[in-house]
Design a protein around this nucleic acid. Structure first.
Lengths: 241, 241
DNA sequence: CGGGACTTTGATCTACCTCAACCGCGGTGG
DNA sequence: CCACCGCGGTTGAGGTAGATCAAAGTCCCG
């Protein structure tokens, strides 16, 4: 369990540029490493934290992926986002001092543990870190706004197209192929996230395939016609590339 | 336009306990007042900021109310929240340095202007203020998660019931009646926010009235059966009061 | 090789949307 | 002062996207 010897090294972490250290000087990154001594590994299906757990830490994803979801009063849950390496989990637990959502590993994963009290203290001394925390909070708000737009106004096919493009761009940002990737989540998770049913999602995958937009083999997806998919999603992005 | 003489006084503000000063010592509140020199008044329909405007300030609502919305690539918009006095607008603009959403006054309103650079600087020196900023960010994330649950999984009637209860509790928190209030937004705004159409919302109001849950007279709403409405919303809250 | 979870596909059903008409009210100008 | 207009809200009839129910098919891991 305890693993104090090989301290976490942000400097050599593959997702350094997407994570908290962004914008920090080398010496500041070292200070950050001081409070990020522990990491944790999880297997597929393991929970990183449960709804109701006391809030004390943030988690930075080193590898793998997670789904994060809130649970309604009647027990059913809504996935609020899929988290990839470099992203932070647990931000919504700060107020109220307990996690309102839970986070589950979608594949074998590892995270850095960031005790928030210490992170807060360091941010007090390091303006660049404080800025970065604000940025991450704000970024997450912005993303959730976009999902609200998706759920409130978009058709099923627009939602799925938008999700595929979103995942594609996030893989691309980490240096992987923007056009070929393996989804780590089940159809049902995608459906839940998009406010649809697994059947509808499955039908859409088939349809996109038939239309020559993508090539699907189970969870492996290859995007064939990025432009057409973008038009379907209603976002005029990803052009001129 | 400029109104330097009567500086904003957080100490005597009616929403002090809901706003940034929460948890600050008197002397710290004074420091906060130093950077909150200007306020701004808006008439119904005025925009506080537009999508794409450069981000430089947060706005604390003193009186009135706002709707905040994001605009999709195809021009249609999704209202992401209704903001009441004591609440902060503009948080999602920090990252990327321009506002991704716009905020429009739903009635004659006034706001405090908080230059974020200065607020940031003060937070660096005042830990309690930094904590409060984190809290507000986190609270907003939590609320958006709840709305995601609403849009993803709930029926039209659950959505409207939940919105009415939400507004009711927010009025109550400010010392107003939890059971009688006048909505400041049009039916169409409610519909947009809830991912429905104005017609559906109108029908639901009529139905709730017929069922004896509420009494509606235009935008004036009186909640008659709070418990039944809570059950409809699927939240087992607001009991034992 | 077997079992269970995940996925696909088909047939039917329904909640909500769309289109359309009507009402009520506040403002505006003659 | 009243007729007119326009916007917001209500109500009705009919259509449809996506849900639900049901049944194979497929993959993966023990």
């Amino acid at each position: 369990m305890k693993n104090p010897s090989p301290a976490v090294s942000c400097g050599s972490c593959s997702v350094r540029k997407l994570c908290l250290p962004t914008g920090l000087a080398d010496e500041e990154v070292e200070q950050l490493e001081q409070i990020t001594r522990n990491k944790k590994t999880l297997k597929t299906g393991d929970l990183l934290f449960r709804a109701g757990d006391p809030f004390s830490c943030l988690y930075a994803i080193r590898s793998g992926s997670f789904k994060s979801a809130v649970i309604g009063a009647d027990g059913d849950s809504q996935i609020t986002h899929f988290a990839l390496p470099g992203e932070l989990l647990g931000l919504d637990g700060y107020s109220g001092s307990e996690h309102p959502s839970y986070a589950e590993a979608l594949e074998d994963s590892s995270v850095c543990i960031l005790p928030f009290t210490q992170l807060e203290g360091l941010a007090q001394k390091v303006p660049a870190l404080q800025k970065q925390i604000y940025t991450i909070f704000s970024e997450e708000l912005k993303q959730e706004n976009d999902v609200l737009l998706l759920l409130g106004k978009r058709s099923a096919e627009m939602r799925l197209a938008a999700l595929l493009l979103n995942i594609s761009s996030r893989y691309a940002r980490r240096g992987y192929s923007a056009c070929e990737f393996v989804l780590s989540m089940a159809r049902m998770d995608i459906a839940n996230y998009l406010g649809l049913t697994a059947e509808t999602v499955s039908r859409l995958f088939s349809r996109f395939q038939k239309q020559g937009l993508i090539d699907v083999r189970g969870r492996a997806v290859a995007i064939i016609d990025l432009v057409a998919l973008s038009e379907l999603a209603g976002t005029h992005c990803s052009y001129e590339s």
